[in-house]
Simulated assay, not measured.
Amino acid sequence: MKFLNLPLAALLGLALTACNSSPTAEKPAASVPAVAQAPAAETGKKRLLFFGNSLTAGYGVEPEQAFAGLIGQKIDSLKLPYEVINAGLSGETTAGGRSRVGWILKQPVDVFVLELGGNDGLRGLPLSATRENLQGIIDTVRRRSPGAQIVLAGMQIPPNLGQAYARDFKAIYQDIATKNKLVLIPFLLQGVGGDRALNQADGIHPTPAGHRIVARTVWAVLEPLLQ
């Protein structure tokens, strides 16, 4: 199984529907080694790219224990013609993702999984900006990889900033998926967010067991696209 971690900063906290009532900002950690991407013509495989924050990057667990790595193992076991690229970056906001997505897409992809926005919500950033940035990322993917399937991972946040803000934040994902005819994962952390047994000591990031549940949630959506 070809599993690539892009040369991005390593991993730290995204608090999404966690048991902690007060959100904490992510801090940069040590950088990870660069791993070259082989051209598709050389590997003969299509590209499945996960683009997100520390949830995607797999903070606090080994790469093969994070949900993206588990998806890669599943793909490998089924001998599907895909390589998995993990473009998760700790602390990433939608604005940051919008600024770097063009660089990430120097080579085309076939499936693009977009997991961003949680840090925007936790910081109380304007929902209009989050919506605009997510749309900008989607537009860039469609320009750079016109044939790519885009999967949008839905997010939710605790109601620290008010019920209305949390409700409107959640609605962004369904709205954008409908507008752009995207495949939607309604909530990436379904069955994991807020469960202390499935999160690390920070109450924020999934344990390996939590990532296994996330991987099942993601796989249920991805499998029909990859078969």
Score class of each variant (00 low, 15 high):
49 L>A: 06
66 A>N: 08
52 G>I: 07
68 A>G: 07
52 G>V: 08
42 E>T: 12
71 I>H: 04
58 G>L: 07
60 G>P: 02
107 Q>G: 08
109 V>Q: 00
79 K>H: 14
103 W>S: 06
73 Q>G: 13
88 G>Q: 11
106 K>F: 01
101 V>A: 00
86 N>K: 06
64 E>W: 11
102 G>A: 12
81 P>T: 10
87 A>N: 05
97 G>Q: 02
106 K>A: 12
65 Q>K: 04
84 V>E: 03
71 I>G: 06
84 V>D: 04
77 S>D: 14
64 E>L: 12
49 L>H: 03
77 S>A: 15
105 L>S: 11
82 Y>A: 09
91 G>K: 06
76 D>I: 02
51 F>Y: 06
57 A>I: 01
90 S>M: 08
53 N>E: 15
94 T>N: 07
46 K>M: 05
84 V>K: 01
53 N>F: 01
41 A>P: 00
41 A>S: 13
56 T>A: 07
40 A>H: 03
73 Q>L: 09
99 S>A: 11
46 K>Q: 13
103 W>I: 03
53 N>T: 14
93 T>V: 11
72 G>R: 05
85 I>F: 11
59 Y>S: 14
109 V>W: 00
49 L>K: 01
60 G>W: 00
82 Y>N: 09
93 T>K: 03
74 K>R: 15
71 I>S: 04
71 I>Y: 05
52 G>Y: 03
100 R>G: 00
47 R>H: 08
94 T>S: 15
42 E>W: 10
77 S>C: 10
80 L>D: 09
52 G>L: 06
59 Y>N: 12
56 T>R: 00
83 E>H: 03
52 G>F: 08
85 I>Y: 07
63 P>S: 07
56 T>K: 00
57 A>W: 02
59 Y>M: 14
50 F>C: 11
92 E>S: 09
87 A>H: 02
64 E>G: 02
98 R>N: 15
63 P>G: 08
41 A>C: 03
99 S>M: 02
43 T>P: 09
82 Y>L: 10
94 T>W: 00
100 R>W: 01
89 L>K: 08
45 K>F: 07
47 R>L: 04
93 T>P: 05
84 V>A: 07
93 T>Q: 06
42 E>F: 04
93 T>S: 14
44 G>T: 13
